[in-house]
Design a binder for these strands. Structure first.
Length: 853
RNA sequence: GCGGGCGUGGCGAAACGGUAGACGCAACGGACUUAAAAUCCGUUCUCCACAAGGGGGUGAGGGUUCGAGUCCCUCCGCCCGCACCA
């Protein structure tokens, strides 16, 4: 019984693909192209099983499309800037560039061992000046087009990483990498004007038909377009006007107060001569970052003593508060409160004993008795208590009041967005330098293009916290390009999402002297199939969509969207173990006591924890090298594609990978020790076959059709099941039947070709063993013969009153009346009909007969 | 709170509105073996029955339909995203 020798086989085919440059892709405008891309990895040190699942899917698609005749681009590179490299430098004294390069070498070798069909000639690493120089140029172009600007603003500060974070990088008030509570800091930093494209980024989502609905919804919500109105309120001091934004101008007559953000300019101005208010504002900032505030989120206000005059009824006054829940960054930083129709305003009004006047009457409610208790009424109804708006619906009132405000020049209808500009400055070393110079006389001066790239200095020290670029003895001191007087470089570097926002363009012409060659990009783009984790649903995917728009505006290329098709795969999970103290344990640390209960090395009981995403901290990581050493790349690839739908999480189990290994050996045995003598390759199929073999041939062609459809629809787990089914059927092909060898050969060759994208080494080995000189990688995808795939006999279910009572085996496409007759003649049916005629009979051709007694 | 998704055997899961549980894992029984591994054959939703056969079954309840895991309504549970966005 021979075992498949994956070690020699996998190395052999990897070498052959490499030597023949099988997967190098070439610009060929006449051919249909297909660009497959997996989100490129951060070179953290080792590839993990989750990466491999992602890349196996991409590789499967790439090889499949190649077999289908497409000119495929399938590149790989490294998202090489980032904090872990810098942290390694701080902890271990190794330079980030060296740490990164070593990790890349390790991970590239791991990718090669998996046999992925990448065009390695296009490999890029974003930390190379040959890469990042181009984004420095882009930034200068953005500056020229006013798509980049510098602004002092309240930013998210991660106290662990000592850097600013973008809004998208703050999850539940914590830094996305460190989990540390984010603080608010007032800093000048560079922003990219993503909000310029708010409408376009939102509206174009509907055209991204091959994106998951959920990702589109997340982006839609993130952009957060709200229709409303701006309304001017004059204060009783007679000189100040406060503008508020509202989505409910129809409730203007229900206004009970005005609330300003603590950072609203007028609030700050009042605070400067009111110590109590200044203290309140300071407190808001303090509490705003504490854990307690995020959990309790108590609404608090400071009554300024000033009143605002109702814009549509000068006789009415409402108090003006400074309130902790009003955000300066959204709308105008000021709101009017209508307690009857907004829950938060109601809570605030109850706390400060403000009047609650309903202005929207629910359907069928009595205007005399309707009152708000603890719950604000937020649904549609009829406007009342509202002067000229009385009797209108909410929608009508919004329009009418909008028109009136505009006529009186007291406001206008407008749109507000949740999306804010993307802050890209990071106070760290291991990133792309921002190519500007600060000059005392000339202000901010862009680095001249001829001076690009601004390279990172190599001689930096990490002994003290903070940004090493800032304290480097010489790097930042330069002459101002304009006036030539001493000036300093910007020492912030770009957010690393800057690099990943355009790498897919660089791959189109990875060695071009410019960022990319326009014709190459316009040929290959957009990416036809992009594959990665859902964690980038707003971050990377939104930034990239913005980038292609910004680059288009700067004249780089004509492209609307970067990714035509997107697939977000699930995570790979694994069993975890914890002891009574909640400490995570490695599986090797666990033994069992005499009663068979799991215990740790010191005899304490162990709890089998829940399935968790593999992570070092939870000690449930399965090492990729161990898997490949034990079972080979194809077995790992097969297991990762089987058992779970690709979008769902996959549980890693030892028994599961062993099952895949059994299948690999079964397939190998079927070709190396076939149960029947096979005719030579390319022999014709005999004219007559045993009926059982005709069925097997039918299955072969059904499998081709089904696997093709499954791969097209990203149902890899079903494709695997289909292939197992065919394998099971081929195992039953025995020599005594007429034509067995020829059918078995057809079946095995089909299997090898269908397995090609999934288990490429084994497929090549099978193909060679079957006597072929060619490679599967160069063999077209098999075609299903529809005539062969069609069954001549079909099994038809017979239901009586909705219950299955019998089945009928009949020739395919039998006439409906014959099928009905046959069904009604069945004893199981006549018994239930009890001599009576059926009330109704429904015949679905080749499927079912439904009899109603 | 708002938005979205999902509930099917012991487990991962299949199922154009048409024979629920394909395929795999695990388990059990058997063959081969001195033995084990590997391999092969068989059983495995559940209940009644020796069997033939029959009843029940896709989170719960209702509805549409000749026919519902699938469509509609109500509820329960789990997961994810956003969260003071005015």
């Amino acid at each position: 019984m021979s075992r498949y020798n994956f070690k020699t086989s996998e190395a052999k085919w990897q070498r052959r693909w490499r030597e023949r440059r099988t997967f190098a892709s070439h610009h060929a405008p006449a051919r249909p192209k297909y660009y497959v891309l997996e989100m490129f990895p951060y070179p953290s040190g080792n590839l993990h099983v989750g990466h491999v699942r992602n890349y196996t899917m991409g590789d499967l698609v790439a090889r499949y499309r190649r077999a289908r005749g497409y000119n495929v681009l399938h590149p790989m590179g490294w998202d090489a800037f980032g904090l872990p490299a810098e942290n390694a430098a701080i902890a271990g004294g190794i330079h980030p560039a060296i740490w990164t390069a070593e990790n890349i070498a390790t991970m590239r070798a791991q990718l090669e061992r998996m046999g992925f069909a990448y065009d390695w000639s296009r490999e890029i690493a974003t930390c190379h000046p040959e890469y990042y120089r181009h984004e420095q140029k882009m930034f200068l172009d953005f500056l020229a087009k006013d798509l980049a600007y510098r602004k002092e603003s309240w930013v998210n500060w991660d106290p662990v990483d000592h850097t600013v974070l973008a809004n998208e990088q703050v999850i539940e008030g914590r830094g996305w990498r460190t989990g540390a509570l984010v603080e608010k800091r007032l800093l000048a930093q560079w922003n990219l004007r993503i909000t310029k494209y708010s409408d376009e980024l939102l509206d174009a989502l509907t055209r991204l038909e091959r994106w998951p609905e959920r990702v589109r919804l997340m982006q839609e919500h993130w952009i957060g377009r709200s229709h409303g109105a701006r309304v001017q309120w004059t204060l009783t001091d007679g000189k100040t006007t406060i503008e508020v934004f509202t989505t409910r101008p129809d409730t203007l007559y229900g206004a009970a107060f005005l609330a300003l953000s603590p950072h609203h300019p007028f609030a700050e101005a009042l605070g400067s001569d009111n110590p109590a208010l200044a203290e309140f504002i300071a407190e808001c900032d303090r509490i705003g970052t504490s854990e307690e505030a995020i959990e309790t989120a108590e609404k608090r206000g400071f009554r300024t003593g000033i009143e605002a005059i109702h814009p549509l009824d000068k006789s009415r006054r409402v108090p003006v508060y400074v309130a902790n829940f009003v955000l300066m960054e959204y709308g105008t930083g000021a709101v009017f409160g209508c307690p009857a129709h907004d829950q938060r305003d109601l809570d605030f009004a109850r706390k400060y004993e403000l009047p609650v006047v309903p202005v929207v009457l629910p359907p069928k409610a009595d205007p005399k008795s309707f009152a708000i208790e603890d719950v604000a009424y937020v649904d549609d109804g009829t406007i009342f208590n509202s002067s000229f708006l009385n009797g209108l619906s909410v929608a009508e009132a919004k329009r009418t009041v909008g028109e009136r405000l505009e006529a009186l020049e007291l406001g206008q209808r407008t749109i507000a967005y949740r999306l804010r500009d993307w802050g890209v400055s990071r106070q760290r070393y291991w990133g792309c330098p921002i190519p500007v110079i600060h000059c005392a006389d000339c202000g901010i001066v862009p680095v001249p293009e001829s001076d690009l790239p601004v390279k990172l200095p190599e001689d930096v020290d990490f002994d003290t916290p903070g940004n090493p670029l800032d304290r480097h003895p010489s790097w930042k001191h330069v002459a101002c390009p304009k006036c030539h007087k001493p000036a300093t470089r910007e020492t912030d570097t770009f957010d690393t999402f800057f690099e990943s926002s355009w790498y897919f363009l660089r791959f189109c012409s990875a060695r071009a002297p410019t960022a990319f060659q326009r014709e190459a990009a316009e040929y290959w783009m957009p990416v036809d199939q992009y594959i990665g984790g859902v964690e980038h649903a707003v971050l990377h995917l939104l930034y990239s969509r913005f980038f292609v728009r910004a680059l288009k505006e700067c004249g780089y290329l004509d492209l609307d969207e970067p990714f035509a098709g997107l697939f977000t795969q699930g995570m790979v999970c694994h069993q975890t173990y914890q002891n009574a103290e909640g400490e995570w344990l490695f599986p090797e640390e666990i033994t069992s006591d005499p009663a068979g209960r799991p215990i740790d090395e010191s005899g304490r009981p162990v709890l089998a924890g829940r399935l968790e995403k593999m992570s070092k901290s939870k000690k449930n990581v399965v090492g990729l090298d161990t898997i490949v050493d034990t079972y080979g790349a194809d077995t790992a690839r097969l297991y990762l594609m089987s058992n779970s739908p690709p979008e769902r999480d996959l549980e890693w189990t030892e028994t599961g990978i062993e099952g895949a290994w059994r299948q690999v050996n079964r397939l190998w045995r079927m070709v190396s020790e076939p149960s029947v003598v096979l005719p030579p390759a390319d022999s014709p199929m005999p004219d007559s076959l045993d009926p059982a073999l005709i069925k097997v041939r039918g299955l072969i062609h059904k499998t081709i059709a089904a696997v093709t459809e499954d791969i097209d629809k990203f149902r890899f787990n079903r494709a695997v099941a289909r292939l197992y089914e065919l394998t099971n059927a081929l195992e039953d092909v025995r020599g005594e039947k007429l034509g067995a060898g020829a059918v078995l050969r057809e079946g095995l060759e089909t299997l090898a070709r269908l397995l090609g994208p999934m288990m490429p080494h084994l497929a090549e080995e099978m193909w060679q063993e079957l006597g072929h000189e060619t490679m599967i990688a160069d063999t077209p995808w098999p075609r299903a013969d529809a005539d062969l795939a069609r069954d001549e006999q079909v099994t038809i279910a017979v239901q009586v009153n909705g219950k299955l009572r019998a089945t009928l085996d009949l020739p395919r496409d039998a006439a409906a009346n014959e099928v009905e007759e046959a069904a009604l003649a069945l004893p199981q049916v006549t018994r239930l009909l009890d001599g009576k005629a059926p009330r109704k009979v429904v015949v679905v051709p080749n499927r079912i007969v439904s009899v109603v007694a």
